[in-house]
Simulated assay, not measured.
Amino acid sequence: MTHSEQTRTPLSAGDDAKSVLVAGAGGVIGRHVADEYVRRGVPVRGLSRRPVAGARWHHLSVDLLDADAARTGIEAAGDTTHLVFGAYVERPTTREQIEVNSALLRNALQGLEAAGAPLCHVTLYQGGKAYGAHLGYFNTPAKERDPRLIQPNFYYEQEDILRAAAAEHGFEATMLRPEGVVGYAVGNPMNILMVIAVYASISRELGQPLRFPGTHAAYDALYQVTDASLLARATVWAGSEPRAAGEAYNITNGDQIRWRHLWPAFARHFEMDYAEPQPVLLAEAMPQYEDLWNEMVVEHDLVSTPFRDLAGWSFGDFIFRSGFDNVTSTIKARQHGFSDCLDTEDRFIELLQALATDKVIPPVA
C-alpha cells in the first residue's frame, strides 16, 4: 500500500453529492476529481470539448465558450448537485485571460440554471497567481486572508462571479488554491510531472546525464506541489464540509521541496548520472526531439500521444526559472478538517513509476 493510499479520506466523505458535473474533465485536475467521485460511487458527468480516453464517467462534449452551445449541452446535467469547475483557457494577455475564463464559468453556471439543476455546491480552482506568483517575489507563507493585489487577475473576476451567483441562487462555493499540480494527463500545459518525465526519458535515450534545466536561484528556492489525487480528495471534502462554505483554502502536499534535492533523486530513479544544473530553454530545445520520441513510442510500445500534448515546455521554463520561495500556508484547511498530506519526493517517484507501468514513458530497465 502506498503512502497516498494510506492517507485517503473515508469513503463516506462526499455523501452530500448526488450528481457531480466536472467542467474541464480532460485536464489533470478535472480527470482526477471525476475519478475520485466515481470511486466513491457518485454519478459523474465530465464536461470537455473532446472525449477523454479511458473515462469511467459519462462524457458531455460542450464548448463552454459558446453560451448557446453550453446551455444546450448542459441540459443533460439537470440533476447536478455539485459543480467542480476546472475548465481553463490560456490567453496571452491578462485582459484576454479575464474575458475568456470568466465566460467559461458564467456560461457553465447559466447552463445549469437553465437546466433547473438543484445546485448545492461549486468548487472553483485558483492558484499561486492569487498571491502574485506569476509576477515574481511574493510574501510567504501566503495565507488565504492576504489582500488581493492591485494587478487584475482572472481568479478574482471568477470568484466575484461565483460569489454573486451563490448569493443569488442559494448554493455554497469553495475556492481551492493548489500549486504545481502533478498527475497524469496529456494536453494540459500546467503539469510539471509530465515535463520532468519526458525530459528525463529523452535525456536518458540520448545517453546524457540528467541536468536541472533551470536557474541556480530556482534550484535552491523553496517550492511546493499539489498531487492531483490529494486535490481530488480535498474537492470531495470541500463539497461536503459545512465549514468550507464560502471559504478559500491553500491545498498542497503539505511540505516544501528544493529542486536541488529532488533532481538527484529523479536521476537515481531513472538510473542516470546526474550533472550540475545547466539553464536551457525547454520550449526551444525539446521540440526538436519529436521524431526521437516517436521512435521511442514504437520501440517501447508506449501510448501514442501527439508530442505537442505530452508536456508544457513553456510551463516548465516558468517553474524552473522562478528564483524565489513559493510557499503557501495550509493551516486553515487543517484547522477546518482536511489534514491529508504527502511526502513530495516519495510521491514523485511513485508517479514516475506509474507512468512507466502505464506505458506513457519508457521503462527504466
Rank of each mutant, 00 (worst) to 15 (best):
A117Y: 04
W57V: 08
L124R: 01
E90Q: 15
G116E: 12
P118C: 07
S102K: 09
L64R: 00
F85E: 04
A55S: 13
T80C: 08
Y125S: 06
T80H: 01
Y88P: 02
E75A: 15
R56F: 01
A77Q: 05
H121N: 14
A117C: 09
A114N: 03
R56S: 14
L65W: 00
F85L: 04
Q97T: 03
I98M: 10
N107I: 04
G86I: 05
S61W: 01
R106W: 08
N101M: 09
T94R: 12
Q110G: 14
S102W: 09
T72N: 10
P118W: 07
R95H: 01
A87W: 06
R71A: 15
I74A: 11
L109K: 05
R91A: 15
A115E: 11
H58L: 11
E113I: 02
A117I: 04
S61H: 10
L109E: 12
L112H: 02
W57P: 09
R56V: 11
A70M: 11
R106Q: 15
P118N: 02
Q110Y: 03
L119C: 04
R95W: 00
A55V: 08
V62S: 06
Y88C: 03
T123R: 00
G73R: 08
R95P: 00
A77Y: 06
A67W: 06
A108K: 02
A70S: 13
H59Y: 00
T80F: 01
D79A: 12
Y125V: 10
H82Q: 08
A70K: 07
H59Q: 15
L65I: 01
D63P: 08
G116S: 07
V122P: 07
A67C: 05
L105D: 13
G86Q: 06
H121G: 10
L60T: 05
Q110L: 12
L104K: 01
E99V: 10
V122S: 06
A69V: 03
R106K: 12
E113R: 14
S102H: 10
A77N: 09
V122R: 02
P92N: 12
G86T: 14
L104F: 04
T80K: 00
L105W: 08
A77V: 03
A103Q: 12
I98E: 07
L65A: 04
E90Y: 11
E113K: 10
R95V: 08
A76M: 03
L64C: 08
Q97K: 11
L112C: 07
A114L: 04
D66R: 01
R106N: 13
A108I: 05
H82V: 15
A117D: 01
A117P: 10
T94Q: 12
